[in-house]
């Protein structure tokens, strides 16, 4: 045989060569800034933190904030627990559930709050225009899509059904990612969807009907999500987290006061169509969590059986 081993090694060598000329890690420390990593989702809700980086609210405090946009949130809580993220963004129901499962998470600031207006919130329940459903109570016996089951979507939609005099246990929820909802609704695969922006805008634009604003039905000032970290991490570096919290609060206040800025920054980190960005309903961004609304959510979670007993909210809330 006349085979050169060098040829065979060429296979691995070629692969290694490809590896050598690919992008390298960018983790250099710039001056005296402390590098902090935050886990976020590339959605509308986190516009304030992108604005905060853009406006220098973090760098002013000596923080070099790196935003890791993990998808769908699957990596977020584990990321905080493992220390990969110094802090992150998640919805309040997920945080309460995680806390009940024994994960020592604690909120830093509010994340995003319901716009508070019936029929004009950043999320709602939609049906086809020619559907027989007129109110949330009519959802009894029908199938409603939510992006996650036993989470904030179905919990608040059940509250809408309850508030409208219906039986929430008679509503059948199925899991469907937000991006798939407009098509699933239109093709009749599903009776109703709980969707948030920008998909809510797409659905409205297609001429479908909004029958409930589930966040508003739960609490007009509903704190939907929060920025949070691990208790250990917080105890390790209280000064750094005081700075992070202050920067987050400034970012949230800036976003709350400058909706045009929110729409501008959305064009930089999302792929949402410009026209949709102009038209869609923005959430509100108060810096403080509305404790009462979180209590309401926690009570609903107990009622619906997401958790067994009344959670210790004092440990979770700042």
């Amino acid at each position: 045989m006349r085979l050169s081993p060098a040829l065979a090694v060429a296979a691995s060598a070629a692969l290694l060569a490809t590896a050598a000329c690919s992008p390298s890690e960018e983790g250099t420390n710039e001056g005296e800034l402390t590098t902090v990593t935050a886990g976020v989702i590339p959605i509308v809700d986190v516009a304030p933190i992108y604005l905060g980086v853009d406006q220098g609210f973090f760098s002013d405090r000596g923080i070099d904030l790196e935003l890791e946009s993990g998808s769908g949130g699957a990596a977020i809580v584990p990321g905080v627990i493992s220390g990969e993220f110094d802090f992150a963004f998640s919805n309040v129901v997920s945080l309460i559930v995680a806390r009940e499962q024994g994960l020592p998470l604690t909120a830093l600031t509010n994340g995003v709050t319901s716009a508070g207006e019936q029929g004009a919130d950043f999320g709602g329940v939609f049906v086809l225009d020619d559907s027989d459903v007129n109110g949330a109570a009519d959802l009894e016996g029908l199938t409603v899509a939510a992006n996650n089951l036993n989470n904030i979507g179905d919990t608040t939609v059940r509250q809408s059904v309850r508030a409208d005099g219906g039986d929430p246990t008679a509503v059948d929820f199925v899991e469907l990612p937000f991006p798939d909802m407009p098509a699933a609704l239109e093709t009749g695969q599903i009776d109703a969807v709980w969707a948030v922006e920008p998909f809510a805008s797409t659905i409205r634009e297609a001429g479908h009907r909004e029958i409930a604003s589930n966040f508003v039905d739960t609490h007009p000032d509903l704190s939907v999500a929060a920025y949070f970290t691990g208790e250990d991490r917080l105890a390790q570096d209280p000064e750094l987290f005081a700075d992070i919290t202050a920067a987050l609060e400034e970012s949230l206040a800036y976003a709350e006061d400058n909706p045009d800025e929110v729409r501008r920054i959305l064009g930089t980190y999302t792929e949402i169509d410009e026209q949709v960005i102009e038209q869609m309903v923005l959430p509100r961004f108060p810096a403080q969590i509305n404790d009462e609304s979180v209590q309401t959510l926690a009570d609903l979670m107990v009622t619906d059986g997401l958790i067994d007993s009344e959670p210790d909210l004092d440990a979770l809330l700042p």
Binding site: S71, A74, E271
Partner: peptide, 25 residues
């Protein structure tokens, strides 16, 4: 990248999906 969200094509697909940019997906 699609599920965990580490940088790359998968993450770009997710971002496009989250932004309802269907042609881009």
């Amino acid at each position: 990248q699609l599920i965990i969200g580490s940088p790359g094509i998968g993450q770009q697909i997710t971002t496009a999906q989250q932004g309802n940019a269907i042609a881009l997906v």
